[in-house]
Simulated scan of single mutants.
Amino acid sequence: MSEPLRVAVIGAGHMGADHIQRIDRVVSGARVVAVADPDTGRAKDVVAGIDGVSVHADAMAALDAPDVQAVLIASPGPAHEEVLLAAFARDLPVLCEKPLTPDSAGALRVVEAEAGLGRRLAQVGFMRRYDAEYLRLKSLLDSGRLGRPLMLHCTHRNVSSPPGFTSVMLVNSSVSHEIDAARWLLGQELTAVTVLKPRPSSHAPEGLADPQLVLFETASGALVDVEIFVNSGFGYQVRCEAVCEGGSARIGDEHAMVVTTAEGAYEEVAQDYLVRFAQAYDQEVQAWVDATRQGRVTGPSAWDGYAAAAVAEAGVRAQESGVRTSVELAECPALYL
């Protein structure tokens, strides 16, 4: 393909706007030709200055816009399934921001629809797989130099939670990234989950059980613990330490700019995920564009999206019951093996 890949972006909110600007300014070999968002005024503001972009209130209109060759979904999770299935019906490759769908039943319907096509069209936006530090850790674990992985210790902190954020979202929204990262790093399915809750931080909104400790078990007997704390008050931090039989390796120690003034020295701390994972998002979208132009689909699959949803649902049940909860997965179609 010599011409740029013509992309329809569904959703022009925080994430969608970032991707639109990324495709326009950073990614090579692609251009945005259509955008859909119920708030067409917002969408028009986002694409101001980008030539040749049609704006639509309805996602289906954007999919059917002239010359659309691929779709990037960045709308709220409940809208994903309809757009994914519509893209499949139009034979359009898709990069879908996580979650694939908010529930495992919907995600399984997407998996079954794609498996019925006999080929992959969807990639799920688990961007940590494209982060340089995560890639180095994955390479190290796969090499076997440290021996068999025994534990992953994970930290996931935000400055503050957005309005309407619930205790359930700590698991099925925030920790979903650790769910996918753990499955990918260890090459194992997560089989059970336990959620422990300390007393809430005084900075947490009323009714939000924040922070929490989420403990996963894997199919081969490793353990993964995740501290999720979405009202830390000071910054966005993501860390992961792998403890293996022959050593350990840790990523996420903020190799950031150090500022020195007359008052002293301090290290800058990222304030949100778009800053911390900016390069990972760039690499993710570039890899998707490159593969799509070559007629291939790579990266996290619809099955990965389904598995993350199923594990998160078990996590919510564990959160609500206070007891260890098993993860139940459907049989994996041959397409994803």
Rank of each mutant, 00 (worst) to 15 (best):
S167W: 06
S28D: 13
C332F: 02
L92Q: 03
A181I: 15
E227M: 14
V230Y: 03
D64W: 08
C240M: 15
V297Q: 10
Q69G: 09
V269Q: 10
L223H: 12
A105Y: 01
V171S: 02
I50E: 04
G235P: 12
E217H: 05
R199E: 05
L337Y: 05
G322W: 13
A122W: 12
Q283K: 09
G16Q: 02
S160D: 09
V327F: 02
V275M: 15
Y306Q: 07
V238Y: 12
T260G: 13
V159E: 01
D290F: 12
H153N: 00
Y306P: 05
S160M: 04
W288Q: 00
L329G: 00
A242Y: 10
M151Y: 02
M257N: 03
E3T: 09
S176W: 13
A12C: 08
V9Y: 08
A61Q: 08
P4Q: 07
E189W: 02
T40L: 05
I23M: 13
A182S: 15
L196S: 05
D58G: 05
Q271V: 14
D103H: 08
Q283E: 13
V224R: 01
E97K: 10
G235Y: 09
T155K: 03
L329I: 04
S220M: 12
A132L: 07
P300S: 15
P93K: 03
Y266D: 07
S321F: 12
S160N: 03
V243F: 04
G207M: 06
V111T: 02
I23F: 10
S174M: 06
H203F: 11
E254C: 11
H56K: 03
V111H: 00
L117N: 08
N231C: 12
Y273G: 12
D64P: 09
S174N: 09
H156P: 00
E227Y: 09
E112W: 02
E114C: 05
D45W: 10
E284I: 09
L135K: 04
V175K: 02
G116I: 04
R199H: 05
R90I: 15
G246Q: 15
T218E: 01
D64L: 11
V168I: 10
L95C: 07
A59F: 14
G49Y: 05
L215G: 00
V327P: 02
E189S: 06
S143T: 00
A74L: 12
D272P: 01
V94M: 05
S75T: 10
Q279F: 11
L337E: 10
H255V: 10
R293A: 14
A34W: 07
T166N: 03
L72A: 11
Y336I: 08
H156E: 01
R183W: 14
G11Q: 03
W303C: 11
G233I: 09
G147F: 12
P211H: 11
A278Y: 06
A280E: 06
Q188D: 04
F88W: 10
